[in-house]
C-alpha cells in the first residue's frame, strides 16, 4: 500500500502530465504512510542542515543559497542554478519524475543516503511555501 501512490506518481510522470506542488507533496506523504502530515518547518530545517558528507557540497544551501527563491550556483562547476521555489521559477515542482530524479541524486550525494518519502514531503511543503 505504501508504495502504491509512488507507483501512481511514476505512471503519471510517464505521461508527462504537469502536476502541482501540492499533488507532488501529497504523493510523497501518502508514500510515507501512517497518515503522514508534511510540515514546511521540518523541510526548512532539512534545507539548512549541514550534513557534512560531501566535502564540496556539505548542505543543500551550499549550491542553492540560504533562500530557495534565489538563484544558486553549483559548488563545483560554477554554473548558475535556477531558484528551487515555484514562486520564483514556475517550472519547479511540476514534473514528478524530475523531482524524484534530483532527490535520488542529491540525497545520496549530500545527505549520504536515500531520503525517506516523509523527508521529501516536508521538503516539497517548504519549497511550495517560500515567498
Amino acid at each position: 500500500m505504501k508504495h502504491l501512490s509512488l507507483i501512481a506518481l511514476i505512471a503519471v510522470s510517464g505521461a508527462a502530465l504537469a502536476e502541482t506542488p501540492r499533488q507532488i507533496g501529497d504523493a510523497y506523504a501518502a508514500a510515507q504512510g501512517g497518515g503522514y502530515r508534511a510540515t514546511a518547518a521540518r523541510g526548512a530545517e532539512f534545507f539548512a542542515r549541514k550534513f557534512n558528507v560531501s566535502e564540496k557540497m556539505p548542505a543543500c544551501s551550499t549550491c542553492h543559497t540560504d533562500s530557495p527563491a534565489q538563484a544558486g550556483r553549483h559548488a563545483i562547476t560554477g554554473k548558475t542554478i535556477k531558484p528551487l521555489a515555484p514562486v520564483a521559477n514556475s517550472e519547479r515542482l511540476s514534473d514528478p519524475a524530475k523531482v524524484e530524479k534530483w532527490f535520488t541524486r542529491n540525497c545520496k550525494e549530500v545527505v549520504g543516503r536515500e531520503c525517506s518519502a516523509g523527508e521529501k514531503a516536508d521538503f516539497v511543503a517548504f519549497l511550495a511555501e517560500v515567498r
Binding site: S54, K56, M57, I76, K101, T104, R105, N106, K108, E109
Partner: peptide, 11 residues
C-alpha cells in the same frame, strides 16, 4: 554517472 567528478549524475 553515480560517481561523476564529485557529484551524482545518475540516469
Amino acid at each position: 554517472l553515480d560517481k561523476h567528478y564529485g557529484d551524482n549524475a545518475a540516469l
